[in-house]
Design a protein around this nucleic acid. Sequence first.
DNA 1: GTAGGGTTAG
Length: 637
Amino acid sequence: MLDMFAKGGGDIHSARMVFDKMRDRNLVTWTLMITRFAQLGLLSDAVDLFCSMLLCGHTPDGFTLTSLLSGSVDMGWFSLGKQFHSWVIRSGLASDVCVGCTLVDLYAKCAAVGSVENSRKVFDSMPLHNVMSWTALISGYVQGRKEQEAMKLFCNMLHGRVAPNCFTFSSVLKACATLPDFSFGKELHGQTIKLGLSAINCVGNSLINMYARSGRTDCARKAFDILFEKNLISHSTDIDANAKELDSEESFNHDTEHTAIGASSFTYACLLSGAACLGTIGKGEQIHALVVKSGFGTDLCINNALISMYSKCGNKEAALQVFNDMGHRNVITWTSIISALAKHGFATEALELFHEMLEIGAKPNEVTYIAVLSACSHVGLIDEAWKHFNSMHYDHGISPRMDHYACMVDLLGRSGLLLEAVEFIRSMPFDADALVWRTFLGSCRVHRNTKLGEHAAKMILEREPHDPATYILLSNLYASEGRWDDVAAIRKCMKQKKMMKETGYSWIEVNNQMHKFHVGDTSHPQAKKIYDELDELALKIKNLGYVPNTDFVLHDVEDEQKDHYLFQHSEKIAVAFALISTPKPKPIRVFKNLRVCGDCHTAMKYISIVSGREIVVRDAYRFHHMKDGKCSCNDYW
DNA sequence: GTAGGGTTAG
């Protein structure tokens, strides 16, 4: 009866009333009540009950502790989870398999209390491993961005003859999405099809995510269609049967609410984030239409994903539209829109929204502050940034993390206060990591301070000896000073160490098709026409006063030839291609995987005049809206 | 009566 109340519709209060009236309560009664409270996220009540239970002289068992631990994990109350861990050790429950698994999960999920290593310790101390403990540990490594390690564990798991289930595949596929070698992901996809798991929501979503993020939108779409079809059959027996055959302990939770009408909201969120990554606004809009048609138009997660999709695809207005139409918002919503505005160069608006957010009583989190600080950094609002940096701790109890310090270093460095930035790094309460120094090195490049740049590079290489980005930044710094011997030395060193640098490329969507260009690319069917257009553009903008800035050519060649190299940059090629293949009032949206080059930035401003077109460039750092010879970044970037 | 996954924020 107690469980009926507790489970049926989650009427925990009726359950509590029954519980309070009971004369005889045994261990199961207490545990049942604690479990239900913990599952509903009412953790304080669960803990209260736990205390009362102890006072009544009952000794909790593995079930009780598993429920409390899992509740702590779900709520993110890791310090509480840690206290229960001590309790587990003291009461000799550490050998309980369920408790062990949950502990592995606890430490896998909390970066603050420890790291994956703590999860590993618990894992190693267990005499036997099952799907659960393996999966929990693997997911910890995936979350900690140690994908290689996760894949190794997965192999060990198979060696140990433990069969993976849909949760395992879900985690491992996520790891595959980031691996350079794609064959592993394909292989796993095959496995999930064989096992009949590919159409189960969590696996299907990971597959979609993996394909979408690596640019294989066709495969993503196929995986999506299969998922969609299968889910329409809702609770089809064959899925369950296959799943049960694989692991008889399993029963899969289909979310009934959503399966009846199609894919779950997460599926759409996956697809949207894939579209956002690629910057394909055409696909993004299609998914948006699908979302509305499937009745997910008011889903919070999806709307958040929509904001970020539109923003990342260069359409700030559409992002704002979604934001304004939302009836219900959470921190992620606010953070998304703030960072969207910041990236598009509308820092004042971003900060206004932040104040609005505080006024209505929404609580910012650490990511919100990253968005706020980066908004300040994008326009050089130093005092404002200091104000927020100090207030995040005092007013909201959020202590600045490494990322926040990196934001401040970026802000100081970018605005030319290099010495202040170094001083700030020295004053940090913990040792600056490679990210912080890399940020600083970037500033040294902008302000051409070779001495400080060399120091920064040294610091980075002490921490991450094989970071190609550092070598590239340093070599660019030398190149801009004409120190070609040093450039050559670095290149040689990189070659010896077999370090790969990500090559720069730009892409653009025309008539729902993606076109990708590398430096000096002549592989496009219309290459001849594109280069003719480039020549013409070069003449026109030089007449308007454009002077090529050869600092950005990183080869040791004569000046005249340098001009020539500049006009082969992938972003210029993409713009020229857009000009000859799209009609006039349409804005041109170019995407680049690295930072846009300074000379291209200048040239594009002139091109926006001679062509009368708006050019939007998304690079690895931010957006540039160029119109009538001006850029939304005000040349501060 | 216990446990694991997918998404959105930098």
